[in-house]
Nucleic acid binder design. Structure first.
Lengths: 193, 193
DNA sequence: GCGATATTTTCGAAATTACTGAAATTCGGG
DNA sequence: CCCGAATTTCAGTAATTTCGAAAATATCGC
């Protein structure tokens, strides 16, 4: 591996961590490399920098593409693809949340909806359905939340994170201020806009 | 597999999905089974229900234990461990967020802190460090947010999720209401409590 | 301590997944 | 079209993970 020591440490770490979040080592390493690189890199450069095979690079890049975590760029007079990560880390966060939702939540959501349509044939099944119903409700909330997150601009997203548990204080406030309180909610928020 | 059809579908699905979030099939299946079961089950019952080997069950249960996703219970006059998931799906959500943070974020956080202490030896390294700094900042925010989440009660947590992007409206409101606006923040919130 | 029962560990086979090198395909410019 | 560079696909191999049987260990009541 032919990299500045500081970058190499980072790249190796991401390779290891890759396993914990469902991608292989090469995918993790390439992502890390592109993230800290000050320019877009082509597949050949990536292969050399990481000491992996060219085909491995190709497959890993395809995977990163599927996750929408890298962009392809082109240079005039050069047919090669150059890869880079988005500059904006907030955008990266949005993409991650979105993709994880799509892969980890959505398939289960539709399964749960299907199962809950069936009639239980026993007490056990009735209980099982009740539990699945609880899970569905929570997942639907989480999904909607993740969708909403996509719409927030960087500043709001940062504020939202920074707020943290403070949100409960804010929610108290909301219920105390008449025009934001519960009841006739839709109309009221329209008026306030 | 010896289960009501409705439950079997659910269990098989969780087995498949297990792969996508870093646990193996047996772990996913067992979790699903315990989640919908109306009583705690012992290792033998789990083994029979799922048609897997006893040792496989044992290892998978240990893994679920490490994730703190199951509880062990005991019955008087019975030495066997009985396993169950928490009743409260909100508590389950908290545990999941907490554990994923611990496994997926924390190790990277400390690596980033270490790397950022070193002096860059080149322009490349300087840029790399700058990027890592951005990542660190975002991860620290996310971490703090996840920690705060642990402290919210079920009602607040539900409200927080239900609020979604509405939070930005709420943040506007906050900045407009004098006593909650920026500046002398600590004093003001104390007064309002 | 002893026997009975439950749990954990060990280890080899089977299955899955990751990686490579070579061959095939695609693509832009003459 | 045809050439050559670049990329992707593919088949074989290597590495890792999963799985189950059996042995070893721990725990309880007696």
């Amino acid at each position: 591996m032919n990299l500045p020591p500081l970058v190499e440490t980072f790249v190796l770490h991401f390779g290891e961590m890759g396993g914990r979040w469902g991608v292989n080592r090469a995918v993790g390493q390439i992502y890390a490399l592109l993230f800290v690189s000050d320019r877009a890199l082509n597949a050949e450069e990536i292969t050399d920098a990481l000491g992996i095979s060219r085909s491995n690079t190709s497959i890993a890049l395809k995977e990163l593409d599927a996750w929408r975590l890298v962009r392809r760029r082109h240079r005039p007079g050069d047919r090669r693809d150059y890869f880079e990560t988005p500059e904006d880390v907030w955008q990266i966060l949005r993409t991650l949340v979105e993709e994880r939702r799509r892969r980890e939540i959505d398939p289960t959501l539709s399964l749960l909806r299907d199962i809950l349509l069936e009639s239980p044939a026993s007490t056990e099944e009735r209980h099982a359905q009740a539990r699945m119903g609880e899970m569905l409700e929570l997942m639907e909330l989480a999904t909607r939340w993740a969708e909403d997150l996509q719409k927030l601009d960087n500043t709001s997203l940062r504020q939202l994170l920074a707020l943290g548990a403070g949100v409960s204080k804010l929610l108290e406030l909301k219920s105390k201020v008449p025009i934001f309180g519960s009841g006739a909610r839709r109309r009221d928020t329209e008026e306030s806009a």
